[in-house]
């Protein structure tokens, strides 16, 4: 009973379970921890081992590593300018971690690190924390001009400032929830359609005949989820760039 219900339960894939002990403590090594390690190792494999030959004419792995580098570098330069390249390692690590989490999570029986709100919120808090700390360090009180757009009539100013503050505060929420919700919803959808196949195969003759339909849907959805996985990683990275740009150039 338990096994089949587990198989049909679309939420089961998000459960964090300790792998070494019975109870979860702060230091427990869980399936989530395992996949964080896997993701980090995969990125490290691509970026460190893939570039170890330092070939002028790159191999496949090195070409992929260079492509990732140039893609993120051009995104960072495009949104923040040359000055923003100081945040490049941070944005790059973030992008690679998120995209590898999303992609590895699409493999059946794996765990999607970014489907946990605590992970995505930790990233968002890290980004906003970096924005505030760097903005204050760099510009001091001038950083508060971020909330006071220039050229606004004095009558509207309190209102505008309020809106700006709300928009700033909602950034970490929207940044984290967007990624989390996309991953969660996509994986639930895939699992629900998978459960359809299993249930229809166990049903009547008509259901058995029709059971390939949800299977086809899974194939199409998987392609769509690949797009979402890459797109959400990109959105996360580019929004990080946009927010960090505020720290570099407040009041624009």
């Amino acid at each position: 009973m338990a096994a089949s219900e587990q198989a049909n339960d679309p939420i089961h894939q998000f459960i964090v379970t300790p792998l070494m002990s019975e109870h979860i403590g702060a230091a427990s090594f869980t399936n989530a921890s395992l996949f964080m390690v896997v993701v980090s190792l995969a990125v490290t494999y691509l970026m460190v081992l893939g570039t170890s030959s330092k070939a002028v004419v790159p191999g496949r792995l090195q070409a992929a590593a260079e492509m990732a580098y140039e893609f993120v570098a051009s995104t960072v330069r495009g949104t923040m300018g040359q000055e923003g390249m100081r945040f490049f390692p941070f944005v790059f690590s973030l992008f690679m971690f998120v995209i590898f989490s999303n992609m590895i999570g699409l493999i059946p029986y794996t765990f999607t690190v970014t489907s946990q709100i605590v992970v995505t919120f930790a990233f968002a808090a890290l980004v906003i924390g970096a924005v505030i700390i760097y903005g204050v360090m760099r510009h001091g009180s001038h950083f508060l001009h971020l909330f006071v757009p220039s050229g606004v009539p004095a009558l509207l100013l309190p209102f505008i400032v309020l809106i700006e503050i709300i928009s700033f505060v909602s950034r970490p929420v929207s940044l984290s929830v967007r990624l989390f919700a996309n991953m969660l919803a996509g994986h639930i959808t895939l699992k629900v359609f998978g459960a359809f196949v299993a249930m229809m195969l166990g049903g009547g003759a008509l259901a058995v005949v029709l059971s390939p339909l949800p299977l086809i849907a899974i194939v199409l959805l998987t392609a769509f989820e690949l797009l979402v996985a890459v797109l959400q990683a990109y959105v996360f990275a580019i929004l990080t760039c946009v927010y960090l740009n505020d720290a570099i150039h407040p009041g624009h």
Partner: peptide, 18 residues
């Protein structure tokens, strides 16, 4: 637990990358 391991893995990844 997730935050601890995220800090460890992402921190290590950041160091390796940068």
């Amino acid at each position: 637990s997730q935050l601890v391991w995220l800090a460890l893995t992402f921190g290590a990844l950041y160091l390796l990358m940068s």
